[in-house]
Structure formats: C-alpha cells, structure tokens
C-alpha cells in the first residue's frame, strides 16, 4: 500500500464521515417520535401539541406520539426531556411558564435555557385584566385609582402560585405601584365564582377563559396584557396604551428538543412545523382557543426564551416571589 492510496483512502473515509452526518439527518426520522407534554391532558399546551401532531406525523412519514408527563408545573416532563438523547426522537411542547421555572424554584434539576434547543414558537395567548361587574370602575385608570384608595385591602386571584397569571399580575402591580393581596386558586377557572361574586377584586386570565363571562356581563374586561389589541376585543386597550408603555406580557407555546440536537434535524422540524402553522384550518382551531399562530425560526424562539428568562428572573428576584 503506497502513500497515495493511503491518502486517498483517508480522504474517502473523510468524505464518508462528513457525508455521514447529513445523511443521518436526511434519513431522519426512521422511527417513532415521542412528543412530551409536561402537563395534564386538556390544557392549552396539550391541545396545541395534539393539533400539530395530527399533521406532523404525515409530514415526517413516522408516527409522532404525544405522551403526557404531568406534575410540578411541568418540571417533571421537562426534566425527562432535558436528559433525553438529543437525536430528534424526543421532543417537547411547553407553555410560557417554562421560563419562570428556574427563577421560582432554584432547586430545579434542569436549565430552561441551556438544556433545550428551541425549534419554533407556535402560538401566543393573550391575558386580560378582569374585574367583577359590580366593581365601580370601567377603565384601567379607574381600577388603578380604586386600588390606590384601598392599599393592601383588596385581593387579586390567580391560577396558582408561580403561574404566569400570578407573575404577570405582580409585574403590573409593581409597574403601577399598587399593593394587593394575592389569593391563588388551583387553576384559573376555580377562581371564577369568587371573581364573579366580587370576593376577589381583580384577576389576569386568558381571554378565551373569560370571554363568555364578559359577554354575559358578569365580568368586565378592562385591558389586555400583550403588545397589541386582540382582534375579538378591538375596543379594549392594552396595558401599554393605558400609561405603562413597557408592559408587555403574553403566554405562548413552543416546540423544543434537548440541547445538542443536530442543526439539520432542528431545521427540518422547524420547516415542517412552520408549514403546519400556516394552514388555515390549524389557524382557525387555535383562534377558537383564543390563541394566535406565531411561527418562528429556531433562533427567534431561542431569543424569546433568553429574553423572558432574563426579564422574569430579575422580576421574581426583586419581588421575592421565589420559594
């Protein structure tokens, strides 16, 4: 064996080696993909995941199976995904509270930023400020004045300690310099009876969940928390418009893979998911749940996670909301 053939052999091996990686990604997927939903069945993350899977399986030519691993605010399922092999066969759908986890629970066994490879944002959900119909206020300004007139006497309800509704409300109270008591419930709907009867004075809740009660005149919707007005409630201003320009809070759902998943696989998944999200029937289904489709690139999704982790970690530390 002379030097030349050895060199060409090495070169060939190099070509095969280099070609091998994209070949693997090109073949992807060759078996069933597990999509972890770290919440109980029936929530917005779960329904969104199932809506996407309906179209993702045929697009990838392999079954995508949704598996619920609920518990501890999504941290059990996320921990499982963070430790899974980064081969594209274990994926996860999370909601916005994913970025709150580490700040609220420093004992968390994974890093919401470093342990995951975001694939795409999928949808955004608006929360709104609702008050009982009996409360003598009709705008956000009047509500702020009313709360200021009763410092520390009024209570706001939330979907639970550390839920995004809780953290968003605390952010608003901090921005507007208000003092209220926090009364958490097991989920937002559990708070509705006390909110309707006026025992609780205010809550941040998803528009989809309060829409019926607002239409029926049992609750008043004073403002929405996101950057833009909601198409269904064009006459309701945003919090930012009402004198707090830096305030912009909304919930979202995102598709993630474990950190270290090959870029080619992430890009392939991103391409398929973005295509699914542009379908009219998917848009309609998500709209009926009060969500707006927001497809994004993996980089944009990563930037969203990083910005929000930074913002809410600062807020949670400053307000002392962590355990």
């Amino acid at each position: 064996m002379n030097l030349k053939s050895l060199l060409s052999g090495l070169a060939l091996a190099g070509v095969v080696l280099v070609a091998g990686i994209p070949a693997m990604a090109q073949d992807y997927p060759t078996s069933t993909i597990q999509l972890i939903v770290p919440y109980a069945p029936g929530g917005s993350g779960d329904i969104t995941a199932r809506l996407i899977v309906e179209h993702l399986s045929p697009a990838l030519g392999q079954p995508v199976v949704v598996e619920n691993r609920p518990g501890a605010n999504g941290s059990i399922g996320s921990d499982f995904v963070a430790k899974a092999a980064p081969d594209g066969y274990t994926l996860e759908v999370v909601v916005q509270s994913h970025v709150l986890g580490k700040a609220l629970m420093p004992s968390l066994t994974y890093d919401p930023v470093g342990d995951f490879e975001p694939i795409s944002l999928m949808s955004r959900t608006q929360l709104g400020v609702v008050v009982p119909a009996s409360l003598p206020v009709n705008t956000l300004e009047e509500l702020v004045a009313y709360i200021k007139a009763h410092p520390g006497e009024l209570a706001f309800a939330s979907a639970g300690h550390g839920s995004n509704a809780h953290v968003f409300t605390e952010w608003f109270l901090d921005t507007a310099d208000l003092d209220m008591i926090h009364v958490p419930y097991a989920g937002s709907a559990a708070a509705h009876p006390d909110l309707i009867s006026g025992v609780a004075t205010m809550a941040f809740d998803t528009l989809a969940s309060v829409q019926g009660l607002v239409a029926d005149g049992r609750l008043k919707l004073l403002a929405v928390a996101g950057a833009e007005r909601h198409p269904e409630f064009l006459d309701v201003p945003t919090i930012a418009e009402s004198g707090y320009p830096d305030y912009d809070a909304s919930s979202w759902t995102m598709l993630l893979a474990p950190a270290g998943t090959p870029e080619a696989i992430v890009d392939r998944l991103n391409k398929e998911v973005v295509a699914i999200l542009s379908r009219d029937d998917v848009k309609e289904r998500l709209a009926s749940l009060g969500a707006t489709v927001v497809a994004s690139s993996p980089a944009e999704a990563k930037a969203t996670v990083e910005t929000e982790v930074q913002r809410y970690t600062d807020l949670i530390e400053r307000l002392g909301l962590a355990q």
Partner: peptide, 10 residues
C-alpha cells in the same frame, strides 16, 4: 371552544 362555541349562559 375548539368547535367555536363559547360555553356559558349564551
């Protein structure tokens, strides 16, 4: 809701 019906008195 996914069917486009808002549950409630209406």
């Amino acid at each position: 809701m996914i069917q486009g019906i808002q549950p409630g008195p209406s």
